[in-house]
Amino acid sequence: MNIPEVAPLLNKMAQDIQDKIISRLAEQPAMIGIHTGGAWLAEYLHKALDLQQPLGLMDISFYRDDFQGKGLHPQVKPSNLPFHVEDQHIILVDDVIMSGRTIRAALNELFDYGRPAAVSLVTLVDLPRRELPFQPDVVGISMDLAPEQRIKLGGPEPLTLTLLEPKA
């Protein structure tokens, strides 16, 4: 499988965000990146779009419903939302959407800060294996992988995509 370069995907995503989201709003949105990969992407997109609100970062570890079931032991980082969420249009950025569980967790945490006017979802890679009904508004690339394959974003400099194959 040919794994694409990240930089051209990010440039396309920035243009799509401008065309599909920002151009339709009366006020500039706020952007939040989900740690870790989504935060790296959001930093790039925030700068490329020259958004005026400061960038928000969110760690959803304690909001995951599979935190203990998968034996996750993340290095928890604090969430930092340096703006009011209430009635704000939010662009939520993550690196990969697969089951939708990360997005559910992010929305749960986001609503603890207030009720946004709207949330647009942006993701670099869409792996259509949904367990929950979330669909991104802007996608860098959609990929079909075998059930045992995974894709990982490496970074922050440079941002790279790597296909993870199961160990034999």
Rank of each mutant, 00 (worst) to 15 (best):
residue 60 I to P: 03
residue 57 L to C: 04
residue 69 G to F: 06
residue 63 Y to C: 03
residue 68 Q to H: 13
residue 73 H to Y: 05
residue 48 A to K: 13
residue 53 Q to Y: 11
residue 54 P to K: 09
residue 75 Q to N: 11
residue 69 G to E: 12
residue 70 K to Q: 12
residue 73 H to K: 15
residue 48 A to D: 09
residue 48 A to R: 12
residue 61 S to A: 15
residue 77 K to Q: 11
residue 60 I to D: 05
residue 51 L to Y: 14
residue 58 M to A: 07
residue 69 G to L: 14
residue 55 L to S: 07
residue 56 G to C: 00
residue 50 D to I: 02
residue 64 R to E: 04
residue 58 M to R: 06
residue 55 L to E: 07
residue 69 G to I: 03
residue 57 L to Q: 10
residue 77 K to I: 01
residue 59 D to G: 01
residue 49 L to D: 08
residue 58 M to V: 03
residue 66 D to H: 12
residue 64 R to P: 06
residue 74 P to V: 13
residue 76 V to K: 08
residue 74 P to I: 08
residue 63 Y to D: 05
residue 72 L to C: 04
residue 72 L to Q: 15
residue 65 D to M: 09
residue 61 S to C: 07
residue 62 F to G: 03
residue 62 F to Y: 15
residue 54 P to S: 03
residue 49 L to W: 07
residue 61 S to G: 06
residue 57 L to Y: 08
residue 65 D to H: 09
residue 70 K to H: 11
residue 52 Q to S: 14
residue 52 Q to L: 07
residue 60 I to H: 08
residue 58 M to H: 01
residue 67 F to C: 04
residue 51 L to R: 13
residue 52 Q to N: 14
residue 69 G to R: 14
residue 51 L to N: 07
residue 57 L to R: 13
residue 63 Y to G: 04
residue 73 H to Q: 14
residue 67 F to Q: 11
residue 50 D to Y: 03
residue 77 K to G: 00
residue 75 Q to S: 06
residue 53 Q to W: 06
residue 49 L to N: 07
residue 67 F to H: 09
residue 49 L to A: 13
residue 67 F to W: 14
residue 66 D to E: 09
residue 50 D to C: 03
residue 50 D to N: 14
residue 49 L to Y: 07
residue 48 A to M: 07
residue 68 Q to K: 15
residue 48 A to W: 05
